[in-house]
Simulated assay, not measured.
Amino acid sequence: MPSMDATLPFVSPEKSTTGRLRPVPAPPWLRTGMRMASALAPGTAARVARKLFFTPLRARVRDEERAVLARGERFEMAAHGGRVVGRAWGEGPTVLLVHGWGGHAGQMTPLVDSVVAAGHRAVALDLPGHGESEGRVSSLVHFAAALARAASLFGPVHGIAAHSFGAAGSAYAMASGVVAKRAVFFAPPIGFESFWLRFRIGVGVSQEVMNRLLLDAEAWLDVRFDGIAPGDVAPRMTAPLLVLHDRDDREVPFEEGAELARRWPGAQLRPVEGLGHLRILRDERCVAAAVGFLAG
């Protein structure tokens, strides 16, 4: 198990402060229109907002990510009624690499070579509505269904390495029956509130519209959000967990990862600095710590 080596960018959790969250980017005309609709036609605003909220943007694939993806074995599978695309590298017990909301499999490729060198097969998905996979909308339920399907095809699953909302989807999948011996979460949320707040502020909808959106979404997905968040399922988890989280993360506050580690039996928290929400995935020291933990 990796030690708190002085070369790693890890710092004491006691120094944490909650940074200002970065709102979801939206053009001014949309914010103005949604503010007006929230006041004049909240029902209509909620329907439009739900579509916006559950429609992820497709992020650009970096050249170095594309090169690693090209070395992988491309596969397709059916999950939650759509086609999901993924890549696999190496042989051995499977480690699932799980991107976050608005991400893609390429964002997890910095872990691939180290996972393979450790004797594992690395499997990365473009989750539903992301990357090369089908669909325009996605959700926690879509994420978990795709992970469950991948686990059935490539299992047994030795480990899961997940980022941000992908950690939420992974925790929900594990709580729903996906078995993994170990897990590493980069910048995980404790719940969904920070995502809802960033959307509400960025898009300009009222709290009433946000409440309607969430009620409609629960009916659509056939779930209750109360009870399925990472912090809700954490106390039931048995797999060892490592949480890596930048204390100045402006998308998922550091305190959320720290609280998740507190609730997850036996979890380890490793705060980092200067890496933000995405660069933490490309930091060589964090990659080494993550793969070392997964290797056990």
Rank of each mutant, 00 (worst) to 15 (best):
M1V: 14
M1N: 11
P2R: 07
M4E: 13
M4C: 13
P13G: 00
P27G: 10
R35Y: 01
A49G: 04
R50P: 09
L52F: 01
L52C: 08
F54V: 05
A70I: 11
E76G: 08
A79F: 07
R83D: 03
R87W: 08
A88F: 06
A88C: 06
W89G: 12
G100C: 00
G102D: 08
G103R: 06
M108L: 11
P110R: 09
H120Q: 09
A122Y: 05
P128V: 07
G129M: 01
E134D: 15
S139F: 15
L140G: 10
H142S: 14
F143C: 03
A151M: 10
G155H: 02
G155Q: 01
A161G: 13
A162V: 12
F165W: 02
F165Y: 12
A168E: 01
M174E: 04
A175R: 13
V178C: 02
K181W: 07
K181S: 10
R182M: 10
P189W: 05
G191I: 02
L197F: 14
F199A: 00
Q207G: 14
E208P: 05
M210H: 00
D216P: 10
A219I: 05
D222A: 08
D222F: 00
V223F: 13
V223H: 05
V223M: 11
F225Q: 00
F225H: 04
G227V: 02
I228R: 08
A234M: 00
R236M: 14
M237R: 07
V243C: 05
V243G: 04
E251N: 14
E259G: 03
L260A: 01
W264L: 03
P265V: 09
L269N: 07
G274R: 03
L275E: 11
G276M: 14
V291E: 09
F293K: 13
A295T: 12
